[in-house]
């Protein structure tokens, strides 16, 4: 087992992890403020890519416009979802909102598969995005590189947003104590909408990366990555942006290394191992790796 082999596997893990990381950021944003686990988050990703698929049918549209439109549709769906389902439920138990998000997820999945048939479909981004670059022992496509860069950009931008802007401060206040911030005159609805906008936009963006990398899309494609990203967010400390990214990378790398380094009669236990790892980490650090002490009690 050479060094290059392990390095290569590590890169594979980072590639996968970066996708989980971006979805997990969206999860974390919403959770941090509303204490809502939004299972429909993964399906926003699906909404985004299907919109792009439709738009790519119209030749002549530049790809950035297609992606932007996908993000906008996904954001709109996210906002509608918030307005129609989650807002009336605000203040009710965590379990109730969790189940309603499952229902939203079922709704979106079925709607998409009714419109676009349940068949897997090919999804091709322009070649300049998917071409492979060899960097020494590893090879990365443009979209991989863009994904990794975008994580850094997103993290910096969101941190600035949270630390420097008024709405960001309001968001932090809300995540500390929703009721108190309302008393202080913060318009919670605006804050929540902003969180959903960012979350859904990021979800659609991940959709491009996921679909561009693997070149296929299907109505149920968002669920498993969504679930893994959710685990990532929990692992890293849900509510914490850095934690979400860290969790995403840990899960991606652990998954790939487990599949890559273990003998093949153990590798089917990969997902079991991931969850086992998650449980162990939670036992040692009940609020996740970077979570604030408040999270576990919530």
């Amino acid at each position: 087992m050479s060094f290059n082999y392990i390095l290569g596997q590590l890169i594979n893990g980072i590639k996968l992890g970066s996708i989980y990381a971006i979805i997990a950021i969206g999860y974390s944003m919403v959770y941090g403020i509303l204490r809502l686990i939004n299972f429909a988050h993964g399906d926003l990703l699906t909404v985004g890519v299907y919109t792009m698929l439709v738009l790519m049918g119209f030749s002549g549209l530049p790809i950035w416009l297609v992606i932007l439109a996908g993000c906008i549709v996904s954001i709109m769906v996210g906002m509608t979802m918030e307005r129609l389902v989650y807002r009336p439920l605000r203040g009710s138990g965590e379990e109730t909102t969790l189940i309603s998000s499952l229902a939203v997820s079922v709704f979106l999945q079925n709607l998409i598969s009714m419109i676009f048939t349940p068949q897997k479909k090919a999804f091709h981004l322009p070649d300049f995005l998917t071409v492979n670059h060899s960097l020494g022992p590893v090879s990365l496509s443009t979209i991989n590189i863009l994904t990794m860069i975008s994580i850094v950009v997103i993290l910096i931008a969101l941190t600035l947003l949270l630390k420097k802007t008024k709405i960001g401060m309001a968001m932090r206040a809300c995540s500390d104590n929703l009721a108190a911030s309302q008393l202080m005159g913060i318009k919670i609805n605006n804050v929540v909408v902003v969180a959903f906008v960012i979350g859904s936009g990021l979800a659609a963006l991940t959709g491009v990366m996921l679909a561009g990398e693997y070149k296929t899309i299907e109505p149920l494609m968002g669920f498993v990555p969504g679930l893994k990203a959710f685990c990532a967010a929990v692992l890293g400390g849900i509510g914490s942006l850095n934690g979400a990214v860290l969790g995403g990378f840990i899960i991606g790398i652990a998954e790939v290394l487990f599949a890559g380094l273990m003998p093949s009669d153990i590798t089917p236990y990969r997902d079991a191992f991931i969850f086992f790892l998650l449980i162990v980490v939670l036992l040692v650090k009940p609020n996740g790796i970077l979570g604030s002490s408040e999270g576990g009690r919530s």
Binding site: M1, S2, Y5, G8, Q9, N12, G13, K15, L16, L210, E213, Y214, L220, M221, V224, P225, E255, V256, L257, F258, A259, G260, S264, T267, P268, R270, D271
Partner: peptide, 22 residues
């Protein structure tokens, strides 16, 4: 000469592929 496996619906096979190439 060898077997490897994945789970139905996995998006990414790069770990298995690198293992095979190796």
């Amino acid at each position: 000469v060898g077997t490897d496996n994945y789970m139905n619906g996995d998006p990414d096979f790069s770990a298995q592929i690198d293992k095979f190439i190796n």
